[in-house]
Computed example of a mutant assay.
Amino acid sequence: MFFYQSGFAQVHLPLSLGVTYQHGLVLVHSPKIRHLQGVQPQGVEINLQYQTTGTKFWHQQYQYPRLGLSIIALNYKEPTLGKSLAASIYLNKLIHRQKQHTLSMRIGTGLAYFSNHFDRRLNATNNVISAPFNAVIQLRTEYERLINSTFSVVAAAGINHYSNGGNSKPNLGINIGTLSLGVNFYSYRTIDRLVQPWPVVNHPLTFTISGSAGVKQRDDFDTVSYVVKSAAIAAMRQLNPKSTLLLGLEGFYDPSLIPRRNWDPRVKPGTSPDIKRVAFNFGHELAIGKLGFGTYVGWYAYRPYKSDAPFYQRLEMRYPITRFIYVAAGLKLHDLIKADVIEYRLGLRLWNKQK
């Protein structure tokens, strides 16, 4: 039983500990990884979950989700991939509840370590994992059957995605479809859910200025690490405590385009098209407490050297350090599936307009 004592009162912490067996299948998303077809990793997951109770307003916004920490160990039983160990934080949101049954969705992200990665001399056929440390994204649907007040059985189906976002190449990434079966042990299941009044949006319009940097490798044969930089200004309109819209202008400098341009047969001899780019972007940010999850689309209005698609996408997490300063980390993509670079951003709120 998890609890802490204050004076003469005991306050129970609604925690649960879960253990599951996980069976996977490598999903072949590209002809280049057909040699991994049929690979079926197996492993174990241990997770610790906290049931939110409404002490924060966003708890009730998302129907009192569970917050968790997951550790997944997988054995791929394939010498190219070896083994992996992933640690991630996640949010488990309720979809449907009955007295003894629940259906929920889990989304999480974290860091994974692979024992075997690409090496031109020792492991040249591993074109999906090029570095020992990679980002992991988890998506999962869970069904839970309550056996008694402290014990439940869980079955789940999901996808685990591993990639380094282009920091090193080759980086085709790996997607693993998973089926899981396990048990949860509860410290205290009965909770009183608090209800809070809807907060007032005090700063509906915010202007920001930010800069980002990220490291990428151009291709499998160019081992140089290029630092990609960007600067942006944006206007953000908060619609409600959950949703904010963004409209911005952004400039990019990607030095990896220089050698690419020099070897590009489409470029006329004797010319050197500018590699700098300027883009307009638009997107939406979903707030979960102080953390913001942004999905954005951009269009290159200025792009003399046309090496990629005219549009790009970005998935970004933003967190305020102070009222006026924030940090963010995100993945920039082209064509929805081609990772370009992982960006690390520092931003400043310039001005807030009161209602």
Rank of each mutant, 00 (worst) to 15 (best):
D219F: 07
Y326R: 01
R260W: 04
S212G: 15
N240H: 09
S225L: 10
F311C: 00
G248V: 05
G251S: 14
E316K: 11
T295M: 15
S307W: 03
L331G: 12
R318K: 15
W263G: 11
A213Q: 02
K242E: 04
D264C: 13
D274M: 10
T271Q: 10
K229R: 06
H284Q: 15
V215Y: 10
G289T: 00
G248R: 09
V267M: 13
Y305D: 06
P259L: 13
F311S: 02
D264V: 11
W263D: 15
G292Y: 08
A231D: 01
L246Q: 11
D220N: 01
G298I: 01
T295G: 04
F280D: 09
D308C: 00
F324P: 00
K306I: 10
D264E: 08
Y253M: 03
H334T: 04
D254F: 00
G251C: 12
Y253E: 03
H334G: 00
V267A: 07
H284C: 07
K268N: 14
K290H: 11
R218C: 12
N240P: 10
V228M: 09
A309F: 10
K268D: 13
P269S: 14
A301H: 06
P255C: 10
A235F: 02
A213P: 02
V228L: 08
A231E: 07
G214W: 03
T295H: 04
R277I: 02
G298W: 01
G283M: 10
D219K: 08
R323V: 05
H284M: 12
L247M: 09
N262V: 12
F282D: 08
V224Y: 15
R266D: 14
I275Q: 03
S212E: 12
R303V: 04
D308T: 11
E316P: 12
I288T: 05
F324T: 06
